[in-house]
Design a protein around this nucleic acid. Structure first.
Lengths: 123, 123
DNA sequence: TCTATATTTCCATAATGATAGAATCATTAA
DNA sequence: TTAATGATTCTATCATTATGGAAATATAGA
């Protein structure tokens, strides 16, 4: 993943409403949700939501498909994976050539689906 | 990790100069670099760099320590780990209670230190 | 067609973020 | 104390992003 692409994705997620939209879509993956449903669930005006969906879309974090009068938005897991990969590749010391401590923390072998969970210090 | 904290960190990283600063510091972990060295290496005016360092600092992504007339900035790996943890916890479908596909991608068991690397599709 | 609904674009406004020169503060050495 | 250097804050300016009402653009059903 390129630097600029990472910045685009980071910026897309670094906004309260957009992060909420993305997380909501994750909860409804892989089908996604219609824009109207998102707007209602998050209490966002249509125009505002549309603006944010465009941002997320542009960043490649969500995809859209039309179904009748509805447009369904769904998360693009791969984009998030790429971002996590990018961060993981740059989250640990590279001066000594290894990622010893950090890797253990960054990429634990197995993890349960959790909402409020601490990173395991000793994976 | 809280939502707002994640947004703060994401916003701190979602800026070209700041991401460059952070990556530079990662290359020089754990000692870090003096502000002057960062400014020189990245070609940033002092005032501009100081502004960005404050942002990174505020987000908890870097720490600073004074040494003589120099102030050394170092990356806080834990903050990045927390962010990756947060993203990992929300990067995959939760509707079915599992993270099957996504987990394999998000959290590969072991990975080498790489600069330009693709996420392994089959971990 | 006409109507209702879903969504986006347009637009103006407000809020926030970035930039960098100049002034200021802090530390050290002479 | 004075001078030199490292770093931050002050300040003004410019640029970007967010907001949301109103108008415009689809789509589907009557």
């Amino acid at each position: 993943m390129q630097n600029k692409q990472a910045i685009t994705i980071l910026a897309a997620l670094a906004q309260e409403s957009r992060l909420a939209v993305y997380r909501l879509l994750i909860e409804h993956a892989p089908e996604g949700l219609a824009a109207s449903a998102i707007a209602e669930k998050l209490g966002l005006p249509n125009a505002t939501l549309s603006f944010h969906l465009k941002e997320l879309s542009h960043a490649g974090l969500v995809s859209s498909r039309q179904s009748g009068r509805f447009i369904y938005y769904a998360p693009v897991i791969e984009a998030m994976n790429d971002l996590i990969g990018y961060l993981t590749d740059h989250c640990c010391s590279q001066s000594d050539g290894t990622c010893s401590t950090a890797t253990a923390k960054c990429a634990p072998g197995k993890r349960p689906a959790a909402t409020t969970r601490r990173r395991p210090t000793s994976a």
